[in-house]
Amino acid sequence: MQTFNAITSRVFDVLLAPFGHRWAWFDLLLWPVLAGVAALLIYKLVSNQKGIADAKRRMMVSLLEVVLYRENVLGVLVSTVKGLAQNLRYLGYNILPMLVMIVPMTVIMVQLVANYAYAPLKQGDVQLLEVTLAPGAGSSARSVTADFPAGVAVEAGPVRTADGRVFWRLRMLEDGDQVVTLRAGDETEPKIIPVGNGPRKVPVLRTRTWEALLYPGEAALPAGSAFETIKLAPPDRNLKPFPSGEGGILLWFFAASLVAGFLLRKRLGVTL
């Protein structure tokens, strides 16, 4: 997980570097279009184009049969069944390209979210730091301690809940990547709290589960960690006129890549 995240993050750090984080609109326009084009080319390469064309043609034939021979009930029924079978065949042809595309598309989306969905905290902002202990890890919430940098003030906490979570209420005092050190037993883990210094990649969550793949902004927790998650809830970055937040970026990415793919399909000679 950690290696995968490190490689993909390094690649995207380089790819996004020329335009920086201030020009979110550029990357939010560019990447869905590139993803749409790449998806078309992958589709063309790995799908059975002839089979897809044939399935679509046969679906159309079945549809015409239904319209032309609608007085013949039995004929309509047979044509409908044939049409549905071709439909299933068509869907079957799409499974392989979908499996091939799912990983690169997810990587692009995850990277766009990590880089653009959140805003760093501002001086004066108040934020809850939440630590969840791994079930069965042997540490209790009362054993969790933390060291805070000078750029962050602890306003309240820790509050240790009966379900194994620990909370602090923090106020941001200084710009910079503030690093909190958390301890549970012998284990020590850092957590970055980004404050000020303009738009950038904002780390949200450290976890030891597969979810770490969705949060490449910071290193995953080791597999045997006493911590299940360490997280912040930074505010959404305002991306107007694009939709904001994780959901907004995902929605935009799907819509824009689909539109781009649909518009370019003929020019690239792809049968969808």
Binding site: L128, R142, A156, P158, V159, R160, F167
Partner: peptide
Amino acid sequence: RVDPEHDAVLVEAGDSRAL
């Protein structure tokens, strides 16, 4: 959720929280 030692409470209302 009341801390076992400190006079502090985690308040959870729907999806919102405050300490």
